[in-house]
């Protein structure tokens, strides 16, 4: 039996990028582009727009690799947050989420170390668990979480969109997030 080669850690690839190694960027793109593009497509529902955001994110990663502190955070989670913010800003014509908050690299230092999703198998299993968890939520809870995550709505906006009292929406979102928190750890 032959042991599977271990994937090169994100932290090592980041260091190589900082030294100008384009192959490291290529590896990170291959590792995370499908995950990110799926999310971007879900938010934007526009292939060209999603492609532009995706390319822009990796170009920013290349230019600002030094901003990311791999010891203190998860690169895919950082990419997911930035990608989501950019996509929602574009979707809603809002600049407030994206204009300057990414620039200083603060995000990189605000993430606690979490689940290791550098490994594709771990990532795939986590994705299955999250999808399953969302499917198991009552329909109205699932809708509330999806409106918040994929359309960037606040609780008040969800209440307006669905014609539901704000208090009810708050309860739905909180309950849903409690369930997801148990799964996501």
């Amino acid at each position: 039996m032959t042991a599977q080669p271990q994937p090169v850690p994100d932290s090592a690839l980041i260091e190589r990028m900082m030294a100008g190694d384009e192959a490291a960027l290529s590896t990170l793109y291959d590792r995370y582009s499908a995950m990110l593009f799926g999310m971007l497509m879900r938010i934007l529902r526009d292939q060209q727009a999603a492609e532009e955001v995706l390319q822009d994110m990796f170009l920013q990663l290349w230019r600002n690799a030094a901003q990311f502190d791999a010891k203190r955070g998860s690169l895919p989670a950082w990419l997911m947050v930035i990608g989501r913010n950019r996509a929602i800003s574009r979707l809603r014509g809002r600049r407030d989420r994206e204009v300057l908050e990414e620039e200083e690299g603060d995000y990189a230092n605000t993430f606690a170390s979490g689940q290791n999703i550098e490994d594709e198998a771990v990532r795939a299993e986590l994705a299955r668990n999250i999808s399953a968890a969302l499917e198991q939520l009552p329909a109205e809870q699932k809708q509330a979480v999806e409106l918040a995550y994929f359309e960037g709505m606040t609780q008040s906006e969800i209440a307006n969109r669905t014609g539901t009292p704000l208090g009810t929406v708050k309860t739905r979102v909180r309950t849903a997030m409690q369930t997801l928190r148990q799964i996501l750890g």
């Binding site: 384009e22 960027l25 290529s26 793109y29 582009s33 499908a34 995950m35 593009f37 799926g38 999310m39 497509m41 879900r42 999603a50 492609e51 995706l54 390319q55 990796f58 170009l59 290349w62 955070g73 998860s74 989670a77 950082w78 997911m80 947050v81 990608g83 989501r84 995000y107 605000t110 993430f111 606690a112 979490g114 689940q115 999703i117 990532r123 986590l126 994705a127 999250i130 999808s131 969302l134 979480v145 995550y149 994929f150 997030m177 997801l180 928190r181 996501l184 750890g185």
Partner: peptide, 30 residues
């Protein structure tokens, strides 16, 4: 920790492989 956790909700969207041209254009820009 909450930021990292909630970011992963996006994994519920099925992964979609982008067109090869996207990567080509990215590497050209680099």
């Amino acid at each position: 920790a909450a930021r990292q956790r909630t970011a992963l909700v996006g994994l519920a969207a099925p992964a979609v492989t982008p067109r090869p041209q996207v990567k080509s254009a990215l590497m050209d820009k680099v």
